[in-house]
Design a protein around this nucleic acid. Structure first.
Lengths: 227, 227
DNA sequence: GAGCGGCGTGAAGATGTCGTGAACGGACCG
DNA sequence: CGGTCCGTTCACGACATCTTCACGCCGCTC
């Protein structure tokens, strides 16, 4: 059983590694959220222990990005005990939330519970393919005909939202909220601009789309043939 | 979503029932462990909230007995915060452990997380079929003879209103309010126009309808034979 | 059998949305 | 300080959709 520990404090990493290895787990540790996402994809751990207070990125964003390509159990370790943090993390896709300082006994029990639930299932591929187009969710990398494409953060966020919900009609409001955040919902010009940029870069044609279909008055839909 | 609450204190049962029902859950409550085990088998809830301090039997035994026939997510509610209790409950098969007094917000978030994990069992028939006509409510797709149909937002909204209430007589006013919003209710010309468009696209005939029946002076009715 | 109202039909104008191209301004970096 | 990248915003033509109107048909009432 492989466990990935994502925490910026070396002492905690060491403590967790010691305890986990003493209980027969294989342990990998990283110190940043970005590394955590990549390691979750590369090493395919059976469990992720994630510190919410990472220096490089917001914890809930780490969860969401991992959830973009994997269903691996994620247990949050946090110094913050606020309800809002717990609710946000759990709703972002976390499986459990433990407040530091925690008892190792309890953490191990919760880890066992999470691993038992996850049970036996095969991991999906972290990189999607649509013809000549490749999208690596873990590394935020887009390649077309082997050539790496440069996409801006907003463009990628929109692309990810589309690709993560293939075939589904995503409304303007839903996309705006997901990419730009709460408080947005009416700025359809943003969508038009970025959909256009994506189509241009991905080589899609608005009038006869093979990837992104616009549903007039409602939203957009990803229709790329998985291949 | 059905939730079974197992707790011996009537106040807690009532409080949980109120909050859960306010969030759209169907709630059943029992007061003893024995009843809890029986109800878990009979009613097949999607989630069990279990008080550890029941008068009739030990909480971990309840978990074990339930686990004997079901993988339903079980969240423990307990006044005891001792490590040994948590570890025992989790290792007995519980999914999560929340200490009373708990914040309802957090409990609901943990319940969502547990339900999400159990998640993709059987999506409750997201796609309706009426002969050669298929309506995928989740993806917002309409197909006829395998061919994808293009329906405008208003057309789809009206179709959805009809299909969601099969066999029921939907009055002009009800349809207008549902599709066009409050403030409408007399514009029957809108209905005539869009019912006509739908019948045309769906291949239905107004004079001998197989899908949408006109109830003169009152409204319309969806009579498609589910197949 | 004549009058009336509701319905289906067809088509026209008005409205709104989309795709497109481009410009502006701030952030970042050298 | 100058350049680039990126997010934001605007304007315009093309087109789909929504709204509105007019007409003929049918069933009902008197």
């Amino acid at each position: 059983m492989k466990v990935l520990v994502v925490d910026d404090e070396p002492q905690i990493r060491r403590a967790l590694r010691t305890s986990l290895e003493a209980h027969g787990y294989e342990v990998a540790t990283v110190g940043t959220g970005e590394e955590g996402v990549v390691a979750s994809a590369d090493q395919q751990p059976d469990l992720v222990l994630l510190d919410l207070g990472l220096p490089d990125m917001d914890g809930t964003d780490v969860i969401r990005r991992v959830r973009g390509f994997s269903d691996v159990p994620v247990i949050i370790l946090s110094v913050r005990d606020a309800q809002s943090d717990k609710v946000a993390a759990l709703d972002a896709g976390a499986d459990d939330y433990v407040t530091k300082p925690f008892a190792m006994e309890e953490l191990l029990a919760r880890a066992r519970a999470a691993l038992r639930r996850a049970g036996p299932d095969e991991p999906p591929q972290p990189t999607l393919r649509y013809g000549a187009l490749e999208i690596d969710l873990a590394r935020r990398l887009v390649t077309l005909d082997g050539q790496q494409l440069h996409v801006t953060p907003t463009e990628y966020s929109l692309l990810e939202a589309l690709v993560s919900n293939p075939g589904k009609l995503l409304t303007h409001q839903w996309l705006l909220r997901r990419v730009w955040g709460q408080g947005y919902g009416t700025e359809t010009t943003y969508l038009r601009t970025y959909i256009r940029a994506l189509r241009k870069k991905l080589g899609d044609d608005a009038s006869s789309p093979a990837l992104i279909v616009t549903e007039p008055g409602v939203g957009y839909r990803w229709v790329g043939e998985s291949a």
